[in-house]
Amino acid sequence: MMLEIKNLHATVGGKAILKGLDLTIEAGEIHAIMGPNGAGKSTLGNVISGREGYEVTQGEVLFNGNNLLELEPEERACEGIFLAFQYPVEIPGVNNTYFLRAALNAQRKYRGEPELDSMQFLKLVREKLEILHISDDLLRRSVNEGFSGGEKKRNEIFQMAVLEPSLAILDETDSGLDIDALRLVARGVNRLRSEDRAMIVITHYQRLLDHIVPDRVHVLADGKIVASGDADLALKLEEQGYAWLDRGGIQSLDIDLKA
């Protein structure tokens, strides 16, 4: 088991957001997390990646059998966790290439692998850019500075391609993208699917899942997973919305629940 989340409770600013969340993910799987606004979807991504201000009050998160919660954010990254941000941060003055090489070398050092010099790194980066069909203009710019919404999201996927995480969390990677940009990003993500890599795709809309077909779909509401199913569940949600949550829960939704 790659990721095991058991009875996770977390607060943000003293307010309970996650209220007993359970989730297990195997290597090679893609899990979609859907759910209404405020259900705790982004909080889950932030808790897994170790963001300050998200306090775990109960439960545990095991990553490859180890307690993830006691690690610093950079240690989690070095262990193979990657969060594609919903709002990638603009960092004027920090060159994209320099930053990414520093990050990759920090991770390689952690794993006891030799660091890459600038020539080796450039070669690697050019391969990844080609796979993702991204212009190398991106390498010369400051991190996300002046990028359009679509460029920012593609830069996240590009970073993921270079860092090759074993668990990637895509936090609303589709938000703010037009349909062409969405296809480009999805194509990038699909190129990175592999047997040793798992992904958590957090999204509001089914349309992303037309392009990135998940193995499992979970509905997160009020801090808990309230329903899980295969890719069809996302289609049903698209049809019927989340009103059933208020109508008396999962039983009122016209779907077959698969354990």
Binding site: S49, R51, E72, R76, F85, V89, I91, G93, F99
Partner: peptide
Amino acid sequence: DETAIFYLRSRGLSETEAKRLLVGA
């Protein structure tokens, strides 16, 4: 900017390294 520090750390840079990059910038 704390958000920028977290962004850099989430990619594997230590807190000190992240701050060094931001101050340099």
